[in-house]
Simulated scan of single mutants.
Amino acid sequence: MRGVVMHGPGDVRVEEREDPRIQEPTDAVIKIVAACVCGSDLWPYRGADAPDRQLMGHEYVGVVEETGDEVTTVQPDDFVVGSFVISDNTCPICEAGYQSRCVNGIFVDSQIGTQAEYARIPYADGTLVATPGMPDEDLIPSLLAASDVLGTGWFAADAAEVGPGKTVAVVGDGAVGLMSVLAAKQMGAEKIIAMSRHEPRQQLAREFGATDIVTERGDAGVAKIRELTDGLGAHSVIEAVGTQEAMMQAIHSTRPGGHVGYVGVSHDVELPGGELFFGLVHLHGGPAPVRRFLPELIQLIWDRDINPGKVFDLTLPLDRAAEGYAAMDQREAVKVLLTP
């Protein structure tokens, strides 16, 4: 089969890889219907922790081809959405709702790579969720979003304790930031402030529910947030970038007693103990336990209550994956969908 492999910074290739097969009775093999490039894929692409060789892709939807003898919740010909972290969904950590830290957890792009034609999914019962039937083609992008960016944005809003009547600020206008805006809207936030300098992303943020746009960054961005919140700061702030600047902008934009949900993959972020102590800001985040939210998100998409698939603004065949990486790296695309 064909699959995407990164060989170093900026070096993305589509290569022939071994066809996956059932190795354990808890496995499933799926035919990938759609995959995509994630913002987190850009970190190694730009040289941060760049691999010598890494299978790429952790967001995926597909059709089950084969299952191991112990798989009971999905079966051949089911259309499935999977989390970007393999989880058994039965360990004590999973049962507490943190499947992304399952004791048997595996990050999909560390061993599997779903920017490919097929994939073996371990712990299929704990990782895959079947849709109510075979989806219409127009639902596939939204279901693909649920595999990571929508689930991550949803977790960010949940971690920031977004709720009715609250003011929410979102730091980051990439796909996860935009999905956080959508999640905040669904959770009943009264005011949703999207921080963005890019007009197309601002427009999409407004479509997803943003009430205000802040173009400033750093201290100027914080000042604007406080201006919009009577000098207090937002109740809930979402950090969806992963840099020191973004984290500090989020913390400083939060009112005393407020909550920061951080889901940007952290790179060289250091937290100031004194500011946290006197700021009375709650911090919660990390790799999103997408599996916790998948059943709810799939149903919302199936019922056409939300349309997160609008975040995909470029679709390419798998063989042109390198173009997709370059387009996202140059901010010429918000998120790229790949079709095997």
Rank of each mutant, 00 (worst) to 15 (best):
V260W: 04
D41N: 10
R46V: 04
R255H: 06
G8K: 04
A234P: 05
A156G: 15
V290W: 00
L318F: 11
A223I: 11
Q23M: 09
M248A: 07
V80N: 10
V74M: 13
A327F: 04
Q111G: 00
C91Y: 12
P44D: 14
I30S: 13
P200G: 03
D212M: 07
G113F: 00
I86A: 00
E66K: 14
M134R: 15
V171N: 01
L318S: 05
A169T: 15
L283T: 03
V103W: 13
H284A: 11
A210T: 08
A124N: 06
T26N: 04
V108R: 02
R53I: 12
V214Y: 06
V61I: 10
R331H: 13
I112D: 00
R331E: 15
I93G: 02
Q202G: 02
V269I: 15
T127H: 04
L316E: 07
T114P: 04
N104V: 01
E15N: 12
A333S: 12
A234Q: 08
C94R: 11
A321L: 09
G57H: 04
M6P: 05
G273S: 10
G3A: 13
E15F: 09
G286Q: 06
W154E: 08
G273W: 14
S147D: 03
V311G: 06
P308W: 08
H58K: 15
S40P: 03
A210H: 05
G126E: 05
D319A: 15
D313N: 15
R120I: 00
S266F: 02
E270N: 07
I238P: 02
M134W: 05
T243E: 12
E323V: 01
D49M: 08
D136I: 06
G163K: 04
A48T: 14
G279R: 14
V311M: 10
V29A: 09
V181D: 01
G97V: 10
I112G: 00
R304D: 07
P122E: 00
S266K: 07
G273F: 14
C38T: 04
E190T: 13
E216I: 04
D41I: 01
E245S: 10
L42W: 01
R206S: 07
R255C: 11
G68W: 05
G309L: 08
T167A: 07
G324I: 01
F208Y: 15
M195A: 02
G126K: 01
F277K: 12
S110I: 02
Y98I: 07
H267W: 03
L338E: 04
L338C: 11
E190I: 12
G309M: 08
P164V: 14
T73H: 12
Y60W: 13
T26D: 06
G218N: 09
P272E: 11
G324S: 12
T167F: 03
V336L: 08
